[in-house]
């Protein structure tokens, strides 16, 4: 096991190297630059800017310089948010994205599993149909529709919650409810469907039949035997889902005006803010590969059929 973990950890190094190198050159291929705008800048001002950010040097030299900086954990200055470094912007935004993602995923998992159990136990009855219809809506309706609709109903009409804002404002934790609900919706839908299918499968298995034939009450059968087996696919889904929910919160962050890193990621690409794009790409990829790695390791503990060599 320890050997496996070390091997996996070492394999992160070439992965990250390839990601950094490819992204660095790819974003430079895109037409346009960070200093172009509707108002063009005079030549001398452009030159001054290029010089300031070492962008007047040959590209490969810039790459070496950047790579050296990254090795010591310095992502450089942002070209758009001129008073902040990329490290600062990520340090400010990432925790907010994590908070939002964690709450949303917890909500999605809890509600998804409950609805999944209900659906499976009441298979092909109205409870099942209505729950699965809700799941289809969750999967098919985009976030930029769900978000504004929730805003309209709960903030504008009922006035229960603020339209937008973040938890450190005066409105406090109330600001978390609508964005977390919005972000959780598609994940809830997927988890509900996944747990329904998986519970149905386990319900038909021999060991459940044995448990029932022993005369155990239905509650104990579900809790002790069914759930334990049925939840495995959900756990394996949660790793990538967590990475996905953090990196995919861009739309929600924009609608609810949350100072996460999703929003500045999109902006950085549109602004050609090269250091910021790179910084975010590195953080996102590190996060993704770490999540995948954790899930792989977790498998070993949860599923006795998997052995690591």
């Amino acid at each position: 096991m320890a050997k496996y973990i070390i091997r996996r950890l070492l394999s992160l190094i070439p992965t990250m190297f390839i990601i950094i190198t490819l992204s660095f050159f790819l974003i430079r291929v895109a037409p346009g630059g960070p200093f172009s705008g509707e108002k063009g800048l005079p030549e001398q001002v452009q030159q001054n800017l290029l010089k300031k950010y070492h962008m007047d040097e040959p590209l490969f030299r810039q790459y070496l310089r950047y790579f050296g900086d990254v090795l010591i954990g310095n992502f450089g200055p942002s070209l758009r948010y001129k008073e902040s470094s990329v490290n600062e912007l990520i340090a400010q935004g990432f925790p907010n994205s994590i908070i939002l993602g964690t709450v949303a995923l917890a909500l999605a998992t809890f509600a998804g599993i409950c609805v999944g159990i209900l659906s499976a136990l009441k298979q092909n009855r109205w409870q099942d149909y209505s729950a699965m219809s809700l799941a289809v809506i969750g999967i098919s309706v985009p976030l930029f529709v769900i978000g504004p609709v929730l805003q309209l109903v709960f903030a504008m009409n009922l006035k229960w919650l603020p339209v937008s804002g973040w938890i450190f404002s005066r409105a406090g934790l109330k600001t978390l409810i609508l964005p977390a609900l919005t972000l959780a919706f598609p994940y809830f839908a997927y988890i509900a469907r996944l747990s329904r299918a998986s519970i149905l499968e386990v319900l038909r298995s021999d060991y459940v039949r044995t448990a029932r034939s022993k005369g155990l009450s239905e509650g104990i059968v579900i809790r002790r035997h069914v759930l334990k087996g049925a939840l495995l696919p959900i756990v394996s889904y949660l790793g990538p889902a967590f990475a996905g929910i953090i990196t995919g919160s861009i739309v929600v962050e924009s609608i609810f005006f949350i100072p996460g890193i999703g929003k500045i990621f999109v902006q950085s690409a549109l602004n050609r803010d090269y250091p910021l794009i790179m910084g975010e790409v590195i953080v996102y990829s590190l996060f993704l590969v770490t999540m995948n790695f954790l899930v792989d390791v977790l498998y070993g503990f949860l599923d006795p059929r998997i052995a690591y060599k």
């Binding site: 200093f35 800048l41 005079p42 001398q44 001002v45 030159q47 001054n48 800017l49 010089k51 300031k52 950010y53």
Partner: peptide
Amino acid sequence: DPATGAEYAYMPAMVIKGAQEFNEG
């Protein structure tokens, strides 16, 4: 100052004597 890389340097550079030259280094 060219090292500042200020985009709006062009405004004073346009009207103030010697500003353009200084901005061009």
